[in-house]
Each structure stands twice: as C-alpha cells, then as structure tokens.
Lab assay of single mutants.
Amino acid sequence: SGNANTETLPSGWEQRKDPHGRTYYVDHNTRTTTWERPQPLPPGWERR
C-alpha cells in the first residue's frame, strides 16, 4: 500500500531518479529540486 519512501517526505515532495540512477527530490510547492533529502517538519510546526 504505497511506497514507504514517499510516506516520510513532507507534503508536496517527490523522490525521483536522474538518468544516472542518482536519487533527487522534487519540491512541487516551490518547483525546485535538491539532492538533499528533505526533513519532515518537527511535530507542532506548520509550514507557512
């Protein structure tokens, strides 16, 4: 039932692989990409 990797990503993020097989992350909220895995927001924090 779903990929465990995507469940731990913050809302709006997606994990992808480039043509060389390297994993990167897409932030659909800001339309940016990063090599660093995004950290889920700490409990009690809200994204503004």
Rank of each mutant, 00 (worst) to 15 (best):
R48F: 00
P43V: 12
E14L: 03
P43H: 10
K17Y: 08
L9I: 05
K17Q: 13
P10D: 03
S1Q: 04
N5W: 07
R47W: 08
L9T: 05
K17A: 04
S1K: 15
E36F: 15
E7T: 10
H28E: 05
T30Q: 08
E36G: 08
P43F: 10
T30W: 01
T6Q: 09
G2C: 13
T23Q: 02
L41A: 14
S11I: 11
Y25D: 02
L41H: 15
T8S: 14
E36S: 13
R22F: 08
T30S: 09
G44H: 14
D27G: 02
W45T: 15
R16Q: 09
N29H: 08
R37C: 06
R22Q: 14
R47G: 15
E36N: 13
N29W: 04
R31F: 02
T6G: 12
K17F: 06
G44A: 12
W35M: 05
R47E: 15
T23S: 10
P42M: 05
E7W: 07
T33D: 01
N29Q: 11
P10S: 04
E46T: 08
H28R: 06
T34M: 03
G21F: 01
E36M: 12
G21V: 00
P10N: 00
R31H: 12
P40V: 11
R37E: 07
R37D: 00
H20E: 14
E46P: 07
N5L: 08
T33F: 00
P42F: 06
T32R: 06
K17G: 03
N3I: 01
T34Q: 07
E46D: 13
S11F: 08
G21I: 00
Y25C: 01
N5M: 08
T33L: 04
D27Q: 03
Y24C: 03
R31L: 07
S1V: 13
T6R: 14
E46Q: 12
S11E: 08
Y25E: 03
D27P: 01
P38N: 01
G12K: 02
P42K: 13
E46I: 07
D27E: 03
P42E: 13
L9E: 06
E7R: 05
Q39F: 12
N29I: 02
G44N: 13
R22C: 11
W45R: 15
A4G: 13
G21N: 09
E14D: 06
S11T: 11
D18W: 00
T6C: 13
W35H: 07
T23P: 07
T32I: 10
T23I: 04
W45Q: 15
P19N: 09
R31K: 15
T23E: 04
R47L: 11
E7P: 12
R16A: 08
G12W: 01
R16T: 07
T8Q: 12
P10C: 05
K17D: 06
R37V: 08
E7Y: 09
Y24V: 04
T32C: 10
P40W: 05
L41E: 10
G2M: 10
T34V: 02
T23N: 11
T30F: 05
G2E: 15
H20T: 09
P43M: 12
T30H: 10
S1T: 13
L41I: 14
R16K: 12
P43N: 13
G21L: 02
R37Q: 07
G2Y: 11
E7N: 09
N29S: 08
S1F: 09
A4I: 14
